[in-house]
Design a protein around this nucleic acid. Structure first.
Lengths: 225, 225, 225, 225
DNA sequence: TATGAATGAGACTTCATTCAT
DNA sequence: GATGAATGAAGTCTCATTCAT
């Protein structure tokens, strides 16, 4: 009994070690430059061992993304239950999303900033379906939160879906640039905390005023390249 | 003299050919799938020839991005001269930036969505310096444009630098997600044009209302992972 | 006592299961594509278990071939007992050999069409000795059958051993080409049944006429390559 | 001029070296067990170098077979011109075929005794088409030779195609067993030269007597396994 | 007895890069 | 200036085999 338990525990630990090593290497060396061999080297196991835990490289990556989403979703669902006004909760959720990305830069880049050309073949696997469902649920949190704010009159907007997607794009822009360029000495970056809070301020402000009010769509020259 | 001139001209032409072929291939096949051999094949030269023009692959890529963003800068500077109100010109500039990204998705991803681990060794090369200067100048366009709008009372904000960086982050979020996920069938994306225009609307709205007005910074739980 | 017996029986059953699964897989997937893991998967045991029954892959294969050819021998011995004239029985035996090969193409290929480089180490094992004895006995059937035919005047030939070996070579040629190329669309193969019967006709005809009669050994140019 | 020539010569030499090494290794280690690495090691070149001469392993094998056929065909066509009676020429051709196989055992096994599962993808390449055409032409030599013998009354048979294919099967049986088992100490093989000549004697005898004469197709028990 | 876990070796293949010519 | 030839390193992945439990 104890033996079986210990085995299961050890197996789970190695699995985690693989995922952790993979995540670290992605940050250190860039996603494309990490091979299964390097991951195996880092944890001092044979490359073949990895195949005992993940069918192939694609599944390893997918798992990495999936785990990230699960954690994020769980935390966001927790935040929803908080006893606070909808706007505060919206802001807290967005802030949480940003912090989460900054604390898991490798997973974030992997999930949102990397072309997933390998997904074609994964689309039918149950793991992928699961990851996908989690992602959609996560986005649902944002929809709900915005909807709440509108219902109680704290925010104004017409199209919920369009608004939610735009808000996500903005916040994603903040997270991804902070991850990628925070250490770049060639650009006079403002202080990180300031950038985050200002992002949240602007996003919420844009929805408070009623975005469309007085805004005229301008004619713009089309870029031909 | 004529001979030397012709030689110099030919040399420059081949250099351009290489860059052009590389750029095309990036668009066609995606960044990761382009090898020097493929570039060489397309222009019907030997792979070794490329090394007469670029020290290594990194330098080739860096040059390519640099040249691409020179085009962006040139176009944005052109837009500045237009005879229009500052707000329209700001909006046109942002729109142009988005379109540019969508039309050069691979260059955009390479420049803004990829960790640049290879830059260490490039930092001292004159090509890199040049690229960097271009990037800073491009960002200056945004600063100037925002400043104009504030001066004439069309927009309100306190910190110019902070605002410019935040605006860029938002717009970058729009571009990068549109590039990466526009074809993703697993997410109910809104129509691309709608997303772009809504992004511009919201960004400008946030600056019109005076972002800080009435916004209270919320206490938020810190994420521990 | 009962326990020991049951255990021995169970052990023998698992051994049979392994051999059976291996045989099936060879037919289904071709010889080269069968790994120990696939065999283990099919019987729902661990790959390691196979090593409790067979020293290594080579021994497994050897045993498999040995058992298969035991079946051939048994059937041929049965045919011998039939109440028919010797020539009919010779023909029936050869026909049986051909059919057997076509029904066990992978075993046949493995045994007769594949260089046995691994035999060196196997030569001393009792399993190999057994296999070998079976093969020799099988060939003895052919010798006996030919001898019978000669004794009763149905066939004419001088050297029994030489004749038997030649007949086997011919029939082997028929079997092996039918196995390897029967599905080849690039060659205008005659109908399989025709080829088999014609082979038998020609073989027997050659022995009826007295092969040497009137045949002059021709001078032939030696091939130098 | 001299330089280009030398280069071309050197390139051709290396190509030959690769093919030669591959052929040797097939004999020594068995076809399935030869990897590109081993071939590269033997000629003391890098594995990658082989890819400069052959697209992949399949093309290397195909070339090997193709070259063999070409040599065989050329020699057989030469034999056809000889001034001799058709029967002698037929026998000489068959003998030549046997000798050729014994002198190129690796090529022979590769071409005629190995399942060509990899050909599916090759079928459309011009190299494969060429190899195939050569093979068909080679078989045509046999057809013509048999036809000549029949025309001048030296041999009797009904169906030319059926007869040619059967003769080939017989001769192939002789060649392939001699190649594979000539060194087998477990079987009391007759002397090689005797086996060859006896094969030729029997084949020709079977066609002289008129195979069908007096041969009754026997009822035979069907093998059920 | 049976096996889960692990691995060394090796499979085919591609790539960025170098160098003699 | 241009390149044909060559390669070391690395890529993903499979396999027969071992061993502690």
């Amino acid at each position: 009994m104890g033996i079986a338990e210990r085995r299961a525990r050890e197996k789970e630990e190695l699995r985690s070690k693989i995922l952790e090593a993979a995540g670290q290497l992605f940050v250190e060396q860039g996603f494309q430059n990490v091979s299964l061999r390097k991951i195996a080297d880092r944890i001092e196991y044979s490359p073949a061992t990895i195949y005992l835990y993940f069918r192939d490289k694609a599944e390893l990556l997918n798992t990495l993304c999936g785990e990230t989403f699960s954690q994020l979703l769980a935390a966001l669902l927790e935040l929803e239950k908080a006893d606070a006004d909808p706007l505060s909760k919206l802001r807290a959720g967005l802030r949480f999303y940003i912090d989460f990305g900054l604390q898991h830069p490798n997973h974030y880049l992997l999930t949102f900033c990397t072309p997933h050309h390998h997904c074609r073949q994964l689309e039918k696997t149950p793991e992928f379906e699961q990851t996908n469902r989690t992602a959609l649920e996560t986005f649902d949190c944002l929809r709900r939160s915005l909807q709440h704010c509108r219902q109680v009159g704290l925010l104004e907007f017409e199209d919920l879906e369009l608004t939610a997607q735009t808000v996500w794009m903005f916040i994603h822009g903040t997270v991804s640039l902070l991850i990628l360029n925070s250490g770049d000495p060639h650009f006079p970056w403002c202080e990180k905390e300031q950038l985050i809070e200002n992002s949240l301020d602007l996003v919420l402000a844009s929805l408070k005023c009623g975005a469309r009010t007085g805004t005229t769509k301008q004619q713009h020259p089309v870029a031909h390249w």
